[in-house]
Amino acid sequence: MEALDILLTASFWVAAIRIASPLIFATMGELICERAGVLNLGIEGIMTAGAFAGWFTVYAGGDLWTGVLVAALAGAMFGLLHATLTVPLGLSQHVVGIGVTLLATSLTYFTYRLALPEVTSPPKIEPFQPLPIPGLSDIPVVGPALFNQTPLTYLAFLTVALTAWVLYRTPLGLAIRAAGENPSAVEAQGISVTAIRMGAVMAGSALMAVGGAFLTMSAFNSFFFEMINGRGWICIALVVFGSWRPGKALIGAILFAAFDAYQVRLQQLSGGVVPYQIFLMMPYALSILALILVARRATYPKALMVPYQKGER
């Protein structure tokens, strides 16, 4: 029964929401890119760059929100690179995405070594602190989980609402969705598909970078090599799992994070009888399983990965 009791503890849900936060940012980022028709495999590297950029800004004396902004800008710059190669030039989104991931990761590691040549253990910063919402944070279980988190977690939830509102309630959102479904219809309205797609990739990449920055500025307090550890790839699976809808993707991210928090606790409970690697494999295996379950009825944006040229049909 112990294994089920975990699900009722507040600390479990606090951890689940904390683990979900970076995934929510990055999943929304990827979702925006894909809704506009661009698969962004740069996500893993962009998250790494964001994690470093945000942390390093604070380490160098900037305040926390400046760090978030710098991370977002770094992400947008890699997004610009990705978009330039994939949108107007129409190069393979697979190859360019992997290339951007390799470049962003290696540039980050290079800069880290250059800035901190001597350190053996990475220096720490003062990260975001939990900000309880008066009244709401006193509700049992739900209060600590949802209303006693760091400001970046609240921002993550706000991002989902904003993404949904922009995509479904504004002309801009309509243009973004149409660019991913039927780009010639966008062009027929006198809107540039190229501009919409490039903008979407840059905005999405900025969100991915903020997701990375969450890890170094809210979940932990310093930067480690390989700290993204496949989270970017998991977010790509979450976008498919959420059938390209912000709300569903949010639920997917929270379910996934709850599972991740659960496996850590089961690991402690099992007392070393089952090798710990089995538990660590579960999140990745779960992502693959989720993809298999939804793949048959997944309705991809029709123009996803299809380059668009003005005047071509």
Binding site: L81, L85, L89, L91, S92, V95, V96, I98, G99, V100, L102, L103, T105, S106, L107, Y109, F110
Partner: peptide
Amino acid sequence: DVMVATALLTMVV
């Protein structure tokens, strides 16, 4: 690593 990643991107262009 930076050089190799850059080479990949310049080469596809």
